[in-house]
């Protein structure tokens, strides 16, 4: 009796291990949380100090078009109009997504519906390879191929939003495609059967049922692609021309939030306005990625309800 009582009231080896495992997991999570929260705090506090410490009006920051943080205008206001970069970032992102979407749909449909075997064997590795190429390589190819080509075909210097769009198109294509493939694969087989049994051809089944049923997945894929395009720095910086001017057409040199950050970060002094202004750009990037994240969740929830 005593022995059984003793065994029941004392922690067994297994439950001790259980506690130990849980403690280790909690510590790891706590470290990650700490890192994430401090990053958020740092970017937010630095980013906001442009407005709080240096008294730059928020409206000026988002609507003025002259970006020269180390100088002041005739009235003594800092020249920190971020509109050109915001416009640049959004236009390359949206254009690249628009351009890539039809190609991504076609590739994904081919790989899942039309020729799954060849798709798996040939296209899958190609797409994985495209994801794995470092962005500096894309930028380099952009610089030596896309920029001269744009210059010859459309005129101008070749540096500009159009070249940035082309480079980003290649970079987001595999992201959108592989995510959309997953979404197509999750369309239940019985939708296809039901459609075929009603006398639909294979193409009618793909276009009217499979693609339609996977629209939420497609939107999520596009948003992910846009998030990648929005955050891409190096490749875009190499081909966009890096002129912090409001672009008046697709061929004029422009800049994005990320390209201004990467070119400017080494030339400013901590705590001064030029540095703080860059932190504000980083804050915008952070907020945007948060928004993209929320958007995919929203689409996922709406799509899930259907």
């Amino acid at each position: 009796m005593d022995q059984i009582k003793n065994e029941l009231t004392h922690k067994s080896k297994a439950s001790k291990q259980d506690v130990r495992g849980r403690t280790i997991a909690f510590i790891c999570i706590a470290v990650i949380m700490l890192v994430v929260l401090s990053i958020l705090f740092m970017i937010t506090s630095r980013g906001l100090s442009t407005f709080i410490q240096d008294k730059v009006p928020v409206s000026d920051f988002f609507t003025k078009t002259v970006w020269n943080p180390s100088a002041v205008d005739a009235n003594g206001h800092y020249l920190v109009g971020a509109l050109p970069m915001i416009v640049g970032s959004f236009s390359v992102t949206i254009l690249a997504a628009l351009l890539a979407t039809p190609f991504a749909i076609a590739t994904a449909v081919f790989m899942t519906e039309i020729s799954p075997k060849r798709g798996q064997r040939i296209l899958q590795p190609v797409i994985e390879l495209l994801v794995g190429i470092p962005s500096v390589v894309y930028g380099f190819i952009g610089l030596t191929v896309v920029v001269p080509l744009t210059r010859q075909l459309f005129g101008g210097t070749g540096f500009g939003i159009l070249s940035g769009t082309f480079v980003l198109f290649v970079m987001v294509l595999p992201t959108i495609t592989s995510m959309y493939i997953d979404s197509l694969k999750s369309v239940p087989r019985f939708y296809r059967e039901a459609s075929l049994a009603l006398g639909a051809t294979r193409w009618q089944t793909i276009s009217r049922v499979v693609i339609r049923a996977s629209v939420p997945g497609l939107l999520t894929a596009i948003v992910f692609g846009m998030a990648r395009a929005f955050g891409e720095a190096l490749a875009v910086q190499m081909v966009i021309g890096n002129a912090a001017l409001l672009p008046h057409n697709l061929l004029s040199p422009a800049s994005t939030l990320t390209s201004v950050l990467t070119t400017g970060i080494g030339n400013t002094v901590m705590g001064t306005l030029p540095n703080n202004a860059l932190w504000t750009l980083a804050l915008i990037l952070l907020v945007m990625s948060l928004l993209f994240n929320l958007l995919t969740r929203y689409i996922g929830r709406k799509g899930g309800l259907k």
Binding site: A194, A197, G199, A200
Partner: peptide, 20 residues
Amino acid sequence: VVNLRKRVGMVFQQPNPFPF
């Protein structure tokens, strides 16, 4: 086959309406 299936319809074991 397409015309055949229009004239010989089928109802499946699992209800399978389209998500429309």
